[in-house]
């Protein structure tokens, strides 16, 4: 096995974890990673001169993830219930007022924080997580996300809103409220 091949193969566990976090489906994540590794091996020349193999592979994988989401949304239209009602009372006030988080930027220096964030993401419904990661991690505009997921702009905003509300609660309960 060539040296390049060995190095590419060595990144498989990292790529799989990255893909699984966003796709939320192990077999789909494995397919996306497999396609990425094949594309990488076929495109070794394109890598020449670049310094970071992981960054290069992740760049390819991001495209494969978007392709996978696109395929999945053609196959299965989404439906998930609204759980926001319990956060607010009938008059629209917070049942529990958000209080300030202590030194959130310090959390960004800690590996444990990101592990917790991943755990929180993994608890989101799949569609919600996909929309959120397309927006916040992969940096897509809302209209592009709507197209990928095959939903209206309004529904897209609702998905993103739900994701943010759920993640806020999860981080509050599992990190900032400690």
């Amino acid at each position: 096995m060539s040296d390049f091949r060995t190095r590419v193969e060595g990144e498989r566990p990292y790529l799989l974890r990255y893909a699984a976090l966003q796709l939320r489906d192990r077999p789909t994540a494995e397919d996306a990673v497999q396609e990425t590794l094949l594309a990488a091996l076929a495109g070794e020349a394109a890598f020449a001169g670049r310094s970071n193999l992981r960054t290069w592979l992740t760049g390819i994988l991001k495209h494969k993830i978007v392709d996978a989401i696109r395929r999945a949304s053609r196959e299965a239209p989404a439906a998930d219930a609204d759980q926001m009602e319990e956060l607010f009372d009938e008059t629209g006030h917070w049942r529990e007022m958000p209080s300030a988080w202590a030194d959130p930027d310090a959390a960004l220096e800690q590996k444990e924080f990101f592990a917790k964030l991943e755990e929180c993401l993994s608890r989101l419904p799949a569609r919600t997580a996909q929309a959120f990661m397309l927006r916040e991690h992969l940096g897509f505009e809302t209209d592009e996300i709507c197209k990928e997921l095959g939903v209206t702009a309004t529904h897209c905003w609702v998905l993103l809103y739900r994701a943010r509300m759920a993640l806020r609660l999860c981080l509050e309960q599992n990190w900032f409220g400690r």
Partner: peptide
């Protein structure tokens, strides 16, 4: 609002 802005920053740095 601050927490939402923080969340955006954190998720960008993920991975």
């Amino acid at each position: 609002k601050k927490q939402m802005e923080f969340l955006r920053k954190a998720v960008k740095q993920l991975g």
